[in-house]
Simulated scan of single mutants.
Amino acid sequence: MLDEKYYTKLVDTHQSKLRIDRYLTSVKVPTSRSRLQKLIKQGKVKVNNEVITSPHYYVKYHDLIEIEFPKPPVFPLQPEQIPLKIIYEDEYLVVIDKPAGLVVHPAKGNRTGTLVNALLYHTSLSSQGEDQFRPGIVHRLDKNTSGAMVVAKTEQSYRILSEMVGNREITRIYLCLVWGQPDKEGGTVEAPIGRSRIDRKKMAVTSFNSKTAKTYYEVMVKYGAASLVKCQLQTGRTHQIRVHMNYLGHPILGDETYGGTAKFPPGVKRKWSHQIPQLSQLVRRQALHATYLNFQHPITKRHMKFKSPLAGDIKKACLYLNQQRKAILDPQNN
């Protein structure tokens, strides 16, 4: 049975001999496996009235499992009338075209002015998510990254979408402007990402306390001082595309954290350096846009595809670069 705080389950014979987190996922407890693991480690799960703190416990026939879900936040999140561009919505999920500059969810010291606050005004989010400040959030975009993202509206859709993200069953494609012109037309960057040992606020390619990270990329257009690159995530590490493009020696234009705002950005040849000031004026944040989502609807199982047009500032930069390229290729008509 399920109420606002507790969930109980009696293990059947055919369901025994599974790890408890896998078992609870298999019987469709209305939350994600990662959240279940956190609840177990926090001592919120009992088996036969004994607290367990390891998800490695294997369930047995007739085990009585009790889960205590966290109480609602003392300071509930406030709905706020913030304009949103909705690409798609039904009773289970909503797909947003997030603008650059909008933080996805509240955090300590920053409980207002976020996408979550806007969604709470616009619609109902019954899915609590991983913690009280992230209802429905199954994947994130950085504050200054624009584009398409999906948010769960119910516990059931949250659990399924979270599993799909973890199993790489949601296709996420991005477009970005990087400095310079990569040597290869495309390829795979497979380099582990972890917290930088020099600056703990940054991520870095490192073998120290890192996780595997894989990004497919394809160079769409080589302009001059910059190139338009398509990236597809195969993993979902923090700042993954930004870190991997910088690792290739071609940081994303406007990315102040990973080399994209240098006076003479790496990868730019001297003959294109006159374009740097104008590009820096046109794009004042990382030129990264989530342009495409492709996934199976978690409830109806319908195949869903969503596109987000390139954000205005990045589009203007591409138009400028294209004009510059035409002027060089056909100087008599300029």
Score class of each variant (00 low, 15 high):
1 M>V: 13
3 D>F: 12
4 E>L: 12
5 K>F: 11
6 Y>G: 01
8 T>V: 09
10 L>Q: 07
11 V>P: 03
12 D>G: 02
13 T>D: 14
14 H>R: 11
16 S>I: 00
17 K>A: 04
17 K>E: 14
19 R>K: 13
20 I>T: 04
21 D>L: 08
29 V>A: 05
31 T>L: 11
32 S>Y: 04
33 R>D: 01
35 R>G: 02
40 I>T: 01
41 K>D: 13
45 V>P: 04
47 V>I: 15
50 E>T: 15
53 T>N: 11
54 S>F: 03
58 Y>P: 01
58 Y>Q: 14
62 H>I: 00
66 E>S: 14
67 I>G: 05
69 F>M: 12
75 F>G: 00
78 Q>S: 13
78 Q>W: 01
79 P>L: 11
79 P>R: 11
83 P>Q: 07
86 I>T: 08
91 E>Q: 14
94 V>M: 07
104 V>D: 11
104 V>F: 02
106 P>G: 06
110 N>M: 13
118 A>L: 09
118 A>S: 10
119 L>G: 04
122 H>A: 12
122 H>T: 08
122 H>I: 12
123 T>V: 09
126 S>L: 10
126 S>Q: 12
126 S>P: 00
127 S>F: 12
130 E>Q: 13
134 R>I: 06
135 P>N: 05
137 I>R: 02
140 R>K: 05
141 L>Y: 06
159 R>T: 07
167 N>H: 08
177 L>E: 01
177 L>W: 00
178 V>H: 02
179 W>N: 02
181 Q>R: 15
183 D>T: 11
183 D>F: 13
189 V>F: 05
192 P>F: 10
194 G>C: 10
205 V>H: 10
208 F>R: 10
213 A>R: 06
216 Y>H: 15
219 V>H: 06
221 V>D: 03
221 V>P: 00
222 K>Q: 11
228 L>W: 03
230 K>V: 02
233 L>G: 02
235 T>K: 07
235 T>Q: 08
238 T>M: 09
240 Q>G: 08
246 N>F: 04
248 L>A: 06
256 E>P: 00
257 T>M: 09
261 T>C: 14
262 A>K: 13
262 A>D: 10
263 K>R: 12
268 V>W: 05
268 V>P: 06
268 V>Y: 06
271 K>E: 15
273 S>A: 14
276 I>E: 06
276 I>V: 14
277 P>G: 11
278 Q>R: 15
283 V>N: 05
285 R>S: 09
285 R>Y: 13
286 Q>D: 01
287 A>K: 07
288 L>A: 05
291 T>M: 08
292 Y>C: 01
292 Y>S: 04
293 L>S: 03
297 H>L: 01
297 H>T: 12
299 I>M: 13
299 I>C: 01
300 T>Y: 12
300 T>Q: 04
301 K>Y: 14
303 H>P: 00
303 H>A: 10
305 K>M: 13
306 F>Q: 07
308 S>M: 07
310 L>H: 03
316 K>G: 03
317 A>Y: 00
317 A>V: 04
326 K>Y: 13
330 D>R: 15
333 N>Y: 06
334 N>S: 11
